[in-house]
Amino acid sequence: MKVRKLCECALLIAMAILFQLIEASIPLPYVIPGFKLGLANCVAMIALYRYDNKTMTFVNLMRVVLAALMRGTLFQISFWLSFAGAICASLAMWFTKRFTPCTIYGTGMAGSSAHVIAQVAVIMLLYEQWRMIAVLPLLLVTGIPTGIAIAWIAALVLKRLPMKEG
């Protein structure tokens, strides 16, 4: 039923916003600037594998906009970073799921890599410092285990969710 799907979407968006805010508050050692666990991507993957690509994109975009609204940083640099990252991650995850024979682990890694590449590209454009690309290899390499871990969590959740009706 459409209403049930709408309610689940709302719950997913709320969880994604929570995850994003929690991630911003965890003080990770600041060795690699821009390193993120990507917990909010976990919710996006649940949406992708439970429903379809449009739902996942919707969840991602709403999470970015609402989280920025709540923190008061709408249209600041961090908003554009998250926005670019979310859009490119959604694109990459849709592409990986639809056109390549990757499992959920591959989708998670593709999402994290695309997110990272988009964020570094936006930073390079905004600050006109092409040297910022030096952080990209580190982020890509650390994105692989985090992508796998997040995909594993999403797989566990998907296995336990009740069947959706309609």
Binding site: C102, M109, A110
Partner: peptide
């Protein structure tokens, strides 16, 4: 985790 995932890595 199949072969396509490893190729992606």
């Amino acid at each position: 985790m199949n072969k396509a995932d490893k190729i992606l890595i």
